[in-house]
Amino acid sequence: MTIEMDKYRDATVMRLSGEIDMYSSPGLRKELLSLVAERVSPLIVDFRGVSYIDSSGIATFVEGLKGMRSFGGRLKFVAVPEGIMEIFTFSKLDRVFEIYGSADEALSG
């Protein structure tokens, strides 16, 4: 998995690619929680290049979301591939995560 950080309008964008699993999620967790500690908001996570996510990756985002909410920050997901969306829906996290089609939609939502 690779993580690239970017800026888009007023938001910070985390672009992810590759597979998020028990091996790669600790690196993601470290990056995400450091952004939470810096109170970076809104944070857009772009899933366009993500081909796989397991429960450890999902747990990382749940933890990140809770951290964001602790200071009123917003964590927004964009371009979530269908297979990953199915996992979010199955785990009922589609009701919890803010999910948009694009960064523009995320910033107007």
Binding site: D54, S55, I58, A59, T60, V62, E63, I87, K92
Partner: peptide, 17 residues
Amino acid sequence: NLDDVRPGGLGLHLIKR
């Protein structure tokens, strides 16, 4: 419980899925 949103506890559901 899938309605209890917190980190962890999802893996078994995904296996049984």
